[in-house]
Computed example of a mutant assay.
Amino acid sequence: MIRIFLLSFCFLIFCGSTIAQTESDSVIQVGFTGSQPFVIPDSEGDGISVDLWRDIAFEGKLDYELTHFEGVSSGLEAVKNQSIDVLVGPITINSDRAAEVTFSQPFFETEMAILAPKIEQGFWDYVKPIFSTTFLFGVLGLFLLLSIVGVLLWMVERKTLTPEGKNGTVRGIGNGIWLAIVTMTTVGYGDFAPKTLSGRVIVGIWMIISLITATSFVAGIATTISQIKGEDETITSLLHLEGKRVAVPDNEKIIDNITTVGGRPAPVSDIHEGFEKLSNGDVDALVYDVIALEYTYRSHDEDDFVLSKKNILPQNYGFAFHEASSLKRLVDIEILKLKESGEIQKVIDRWVNSGE
C-alpha cells in the first residue's frame, strides 16, 4: 500500500513538472493594436506598447510571437476566444471591456487633448469692437446723458455760460455740455464754473453720478471687446467647441462629452483620419489621446496648430488577457517595476520626441 502511494506521488510530481516545463517552453501569442506612437502602422511591431512588452518579455524570459490586429475590438475578441494570450496597445480600461476580458495594471494614465489650427488676430479683429452695436449704443447713451446735464446747467446758469444770456441758446447748451464733460473727467479747466446754488447742486450731483456712470460704461465696453475678440480665437478648451465640428475617436463616452458642450462630433477610426480632416478644414478641432496628438503635432509644422492639454476625460491604458490567464500576474509585477524605475516614461518620451 505504501509502495503504491509513493509511486502515485512520484507520478504526480513528474506530470506536474512536465506540464510546467511545457508551459514555460510554449510560445506566447501576443496581439498588438492601436494608433501611433503606441503602435506604428505597417510595421512588424514598433511603438511604445510593443517596446514595453519586449521589456516585460525580456525580464520574464518569455518566448512570444506578435500578431497585428486592425482594431481594438477584433483584438479583444481574439483574447476572449483565447486565440491569443495577451493584447498589447493603448487599450482603454473600462467596465464594458472588463466584463469580457481581464486587464493588467495600468501602464499609463492618459487624457484627451485638443489640437486646433492657430488663428492669428488681424487688424480688423482689433478694430471690429469699436463698430459693435453694444459699443455704439454705449457711446450714444453717454452723449445723451451729457446733453441732458448740459441743458440743465444752461437753464440755471445762462448768464454764466453765455454772455448773451437767453439769446445764446445753442452756445449756452454747448458750454453746459463742455462743463459736464470736464466735470466727469475730473479735468476741471476752470473756464466755466457754476455760480448759482442750483448750478452747484446740479454739478455736485453730476460728479457723483458721473463716477458711477463712467465706471459702468468702461466695464461694459471692456467686456464687449473681450467677448468679441474671443469669438475668433484659437480653440483651446472644451468651452470653445460649442457649435464647432470636432473629430473624435469612435468612443461613446467621448462623443457624449463633446455633444454636452455643444460640439458636433465627427467620429474617426484613427488619428491619421482625424488629422487629415483637420488639415483639410473638414473639422475645426481634433480631440484625441494626448500622447498620440503630441506625436502627430510634432511630426508636422507646429506653427500651424495649437495643442491644448486640459485634463480632458482622464483614462488608463492596460494590456488585455483572457479570464483564465496565468500570465497576468507576471506582467502586472513587471509593469509595476517599469513604472517604479521610470522606464515607461522614458520609452514614451523617446517616441514622442522622435516625432520632432
Results as ranks from 00 to 15, higher is better:
6 L>M: 11
8 S>L: 14
8 S>F: 13
16 G>A: 14
20 A>E: 10
20 A>N: 11
23 E>G: 09
25 D>L: 15
25 D>R: 13
29 Q>P: 05
36 Q>W: 07
47 G>F: 05
47 G>C: 05
49 S>N: 01
51 D>I: 07
52 L>I: 14
56 I>L: 08
59 E>D: 13
65 E>N: 14
71 G>N: 14
72 V>H: 03
73 S>A: 12
73 S>W: 00
86 V>W: 03
90 P>F: 11
99 A>Q: 11
100 E>L: 10
100 E>P: 00
102 T>F: 00
107 F>Q: 01
109 E>F: 12
110 T>W: 08
119 I>L: 09
123 F>I: 13
123 F>Q: 06
124 W>H: 00
125 D>P: 02
126 Y>C: 00
127 V>C: 07
134 T>N: 13
135 F>C: 02
135 F>R: 05
141 G>Q: 00
141 G>L: 01
146 L>D: 10
146 L>G: 10
150 G>Y: 08
150 G>S: 11
150 G>N: 10
151 V>R: 14
164 E>A: 14
164 E>N: 10
165 G>L: 06
166 K>T: 14
166 K>N: 14
172 G>M: 08
178 W>D: 15
181 I>A: 11
182 V>F: 13
183 T>F: 07
189 Y>I: 13
190 G>Q: 03
192 F>Q: 04
194 P>A: 01
197 L>E: 05
203 V>C: 02
203 V>M: 09
205 I>G: 10
215 T>N: 12
220 G>Y: 01
220 G>Q: 05
223 T>G: 15
227 Q>G: 11
228 I>C: 02
229 K>H: 09
230 G>S: 11
232 D>I: 09
241 L>W: 00
252 E>A: 15
254 I>G: 07
258 I>M: 07
267 P>Q: 06
271 I>R: 04
272 H>S: 14
272 H>Q: 13
274 G>N: 00
278 L>W: 02
280 N>K: 15
281 G>A: 08
281 G>N: 05
282 D>P: 06
284 D>Y: 05
286 L>C: 03
287 V>F: 02
287 V>D: 03
292 A>Q: 11
294 E>S: 12
295 Y>C: 09
296 T>W: 04
297 Y>C: 06
300 H>Q: 15
302 E>M: 14
303 D>M: 10
309 K>V: 10
309 K>G: 09
312 I>K: 04
320 A>G: 06
325 S>A: 00
325 S>N: 03
327 L>A: 03
330 L>V: 15
331 V>M: 01
333 I>K: 13
342 G>P: 07
342 G>I: 03
344 I>E: 04
346 K>C: 04
346 K>T: 13
